[in-house]
Design a protein around this nucleic acid. Sequence first.
DNA 1: AATGAATGAGCTTTCATTCAT
DNA 2: CATGAATGAAAGCTCATTCAT
Lengths: 212, 212, 212, 212
Amino acid sequence: MNDPTTMRRSPKQLRSQQRVDDILDAAARLFREVGYEAATTNAIAGQAQVPIGSLYQFFPNKESILKALAQRYTDQMRDLHARTLSPTATEGLPLAQVIGGYLQAMGEFEAAHVAFRLLFLSAEQTQTHEMQAEIIQRVDDLLAARFPLLRPERRRQAASASVGIVKGLMIISGEPATLSAEQSGDEIITALLGYIRAVLVQEALPLPPDLA
Amino acid sequence: MNDPTTMRRSPKQLRSQQRVDDILDAAARLFREVGYEAATTNAIAGQAQVPIGSLYQFFPNKESILKALAQRYTDQMRDLHARTLSPTATEGLPLAQVIGGYLQAMGEFEAAHVAFRLLFLSAEQTQTHEMQAEIIQRVDDLLAARFPLLRPERRRQAASASVGIVKGLMIISGEPATLSAEQSGDEIITALLGYIRAVLVQEALPLPPDLA
Amino acid sequence: MNDPTTMRRSPKQLRSQQRVDDILDAAARLFREVGYEAATTNAIAGQAQVPIGSLYQFFPNKESILKALAQRYTDQMRDLHARTLSPTATEGLPLAQVIGGYLQAMGEFEAAHVAFRLLFLSAEQTQTHEMQAEIIQRVDDLLAARFPLLRPERRRQAASASVGIVKGLMIISGEPATLSAEQSGDEIITALLGYIRAVLVQEALPLPPDLA
Amino acid sequence: MNDPTTMRRSPKQLRSQQRVDDILDAAARLFREVGYEAATTNAIAGQAQVPIGSLYQFFPNKESILKALAQRYTDQMRDLHARTLSPTATEGLPLAQVIGGYLQAMGEFEAAHVAFRLLFLSAEQTQTHEMQAEIIQRVDDLLAARFPLLRPERRRQAASASVGIVKGLMIISGEPATLSAEQSGDEIITALLGYIRAVLVQEALPLPPDLA
DNA sequence: AATGAATGAGCTTTCATTCAT
DNA sequence: CATGAATGAAAGCTCATTCAT
């Protein structure tokens, strides 16, 4: 009947909304600091200064907190996507600049949303799929606007792969003895441009000037 | 004094070595099936048909089992690297073929070592760094042999990024609504070749025929 | 001062009375379905479509709901008793028929009052004593009318025992591998008649024709 | 695979057996004092002076403790049955004396096993069925020896009903304003003899001298 | 060295009851 | 008087680790 991984009650009142936000903030902090498994629901409630009973009025279980957090990030990223990836906002800009602008915004988002990295980069979390699907869709839209001749299936594949490349390089750059944070940005741009160029060549499509 | 995440004593005796292997096999199976957190040390010992007390004579704690597993995989991958990435074994082959051979071998390795994917693809596991460092080094060696004019720092960066790209695409392809397993192999080749070409262009180095 | 297991205020208003009835109906349903302990006050209020706060304005605690339910059943049984056990209504009927009629009525009552069985058959619930006392009294009255020579103390004892016999056979018949529901009715009649006959013989009193 | 209401490990060692006994004793005491639901597993462990973890090594959950207690009582009653109900032990004795001896033994058993009453008298507990089935079987055996002409189906029915009668009268006698403990014993004998006589009459079987 | 019973802190989650609105 | 969000003590149970045998 009711999905045990969804929020119990969507908070209508301002006070309740504030509480849910507090809980999600605390959860984000703790997930970041000690990981999902080690973050206890009592600790989350404690950090959020919310009684444990109240936490369970909004969330039926721990997993639903993770899911709600992912949902919140997904929602909050929509504006970011509109600003940095939408065809209208990026029209005329060289691809490198678009990617750069997107990475810049993502870096800021990541800094402001402490568990985003965890959620975005952690392998196979059902909770993250929706978030990722949305990102892929935005990239797909961008590719569609940029390369109208690219077949939709190939485009979707390229969009998925592009997100995978970003993900992989972000993961790598977070680890010691690999890429520095500064390098990773440039490297992501290089890799994505190189990849997209290769796809276009494969598909025998014309290269735009900045990929030639 | 003694690192609590390292194996307690390297088992000299044959029987001990067998036991350690049994434990690691059981751990790999369980980690794969239920994840690291949900795999209990008692369950690992049970699966391995080894008394829990014995398990704790070889491993000081649960984390050390994960670490040892990563170490075992690292060791076992050395042969794979020699066969598929070493300059001598790959001399004269087109890069695409080298990468294809490597991915093929990795696929087989992954199938034979059930927790490899978990360890290699996990976003941030301190236990995996050594394994990854080794992979990066092999790629670095390969690039050094292929592109002797590439500056060592740039090369190391490219090697790290290449591994990141592979990782990212492997992660993505494991998730629904993205890349199929079949597509991911081709896409990894496309992405890597595209990336390396871009690096060479950036560095104003000559392109080999198969990247032109 | 005020008994915490009694209803807080007897609802004078019509709307209040309706609410109390709704609560008791919901409680009866839930007690029957999941048992007293597992039935939560919030679930009762929810089923009754009454705010939990209102529930606590009528009932100081969960136990008092059970008690009020028993009281309601006791009240509602009064009519049943008058119809099936009162000396006037049963005058001239053979005892077996009286018992049969009573059991029939009880069966219907039980079907219509879902938690009655739970309350009546529960081994030791302080809440049930009054209900049982009333039943015993009715049986006592019946015996008084039927057997005027039976000493009052012996009669009261026999009335208590008779109710115990009914109770015991009802409990047994609800359990697997014992008596079927059909058998239990006949068996109760057999047992009660046999018991009363034995009492009369013990007391050296004349047996009516149908017990001879 | 493994029944979650059965003991986890049957204690082989003497020390373990002692622990299990301590747990069951403590559980019996607590069940008696506060009831099954209100008796917490931690309280049981505390009373038994056994760490909670050890309790859960033997019992997978709270219900299994109740079940094991019922099983222990069932086992311990076997000797009582042999002494008081077996055809050989009761041969030649008048039925009233047999019942009296049985009730006497049951009274002593009840006094020595504090939760027996709760388990035997509580309505519909799956945990009690086996215990009750055994009692019914013993009564059936006794009836078979005493009244060989009684049809087996009728006999089994009578055995079930007899146990029901005992149960009902025990329940009633535990409640205020009904039967005193002393009276209940006599009343049970009266009721059982009266019932069995009625059954024999119904079946048109000869009455033994003490039932005539 | 080998064993596996023993340990108890700590986990997630529930629910009777209150009280500010 | 009516409401239902809020509360937090306490429940059942797990499991990494130890240590007496």
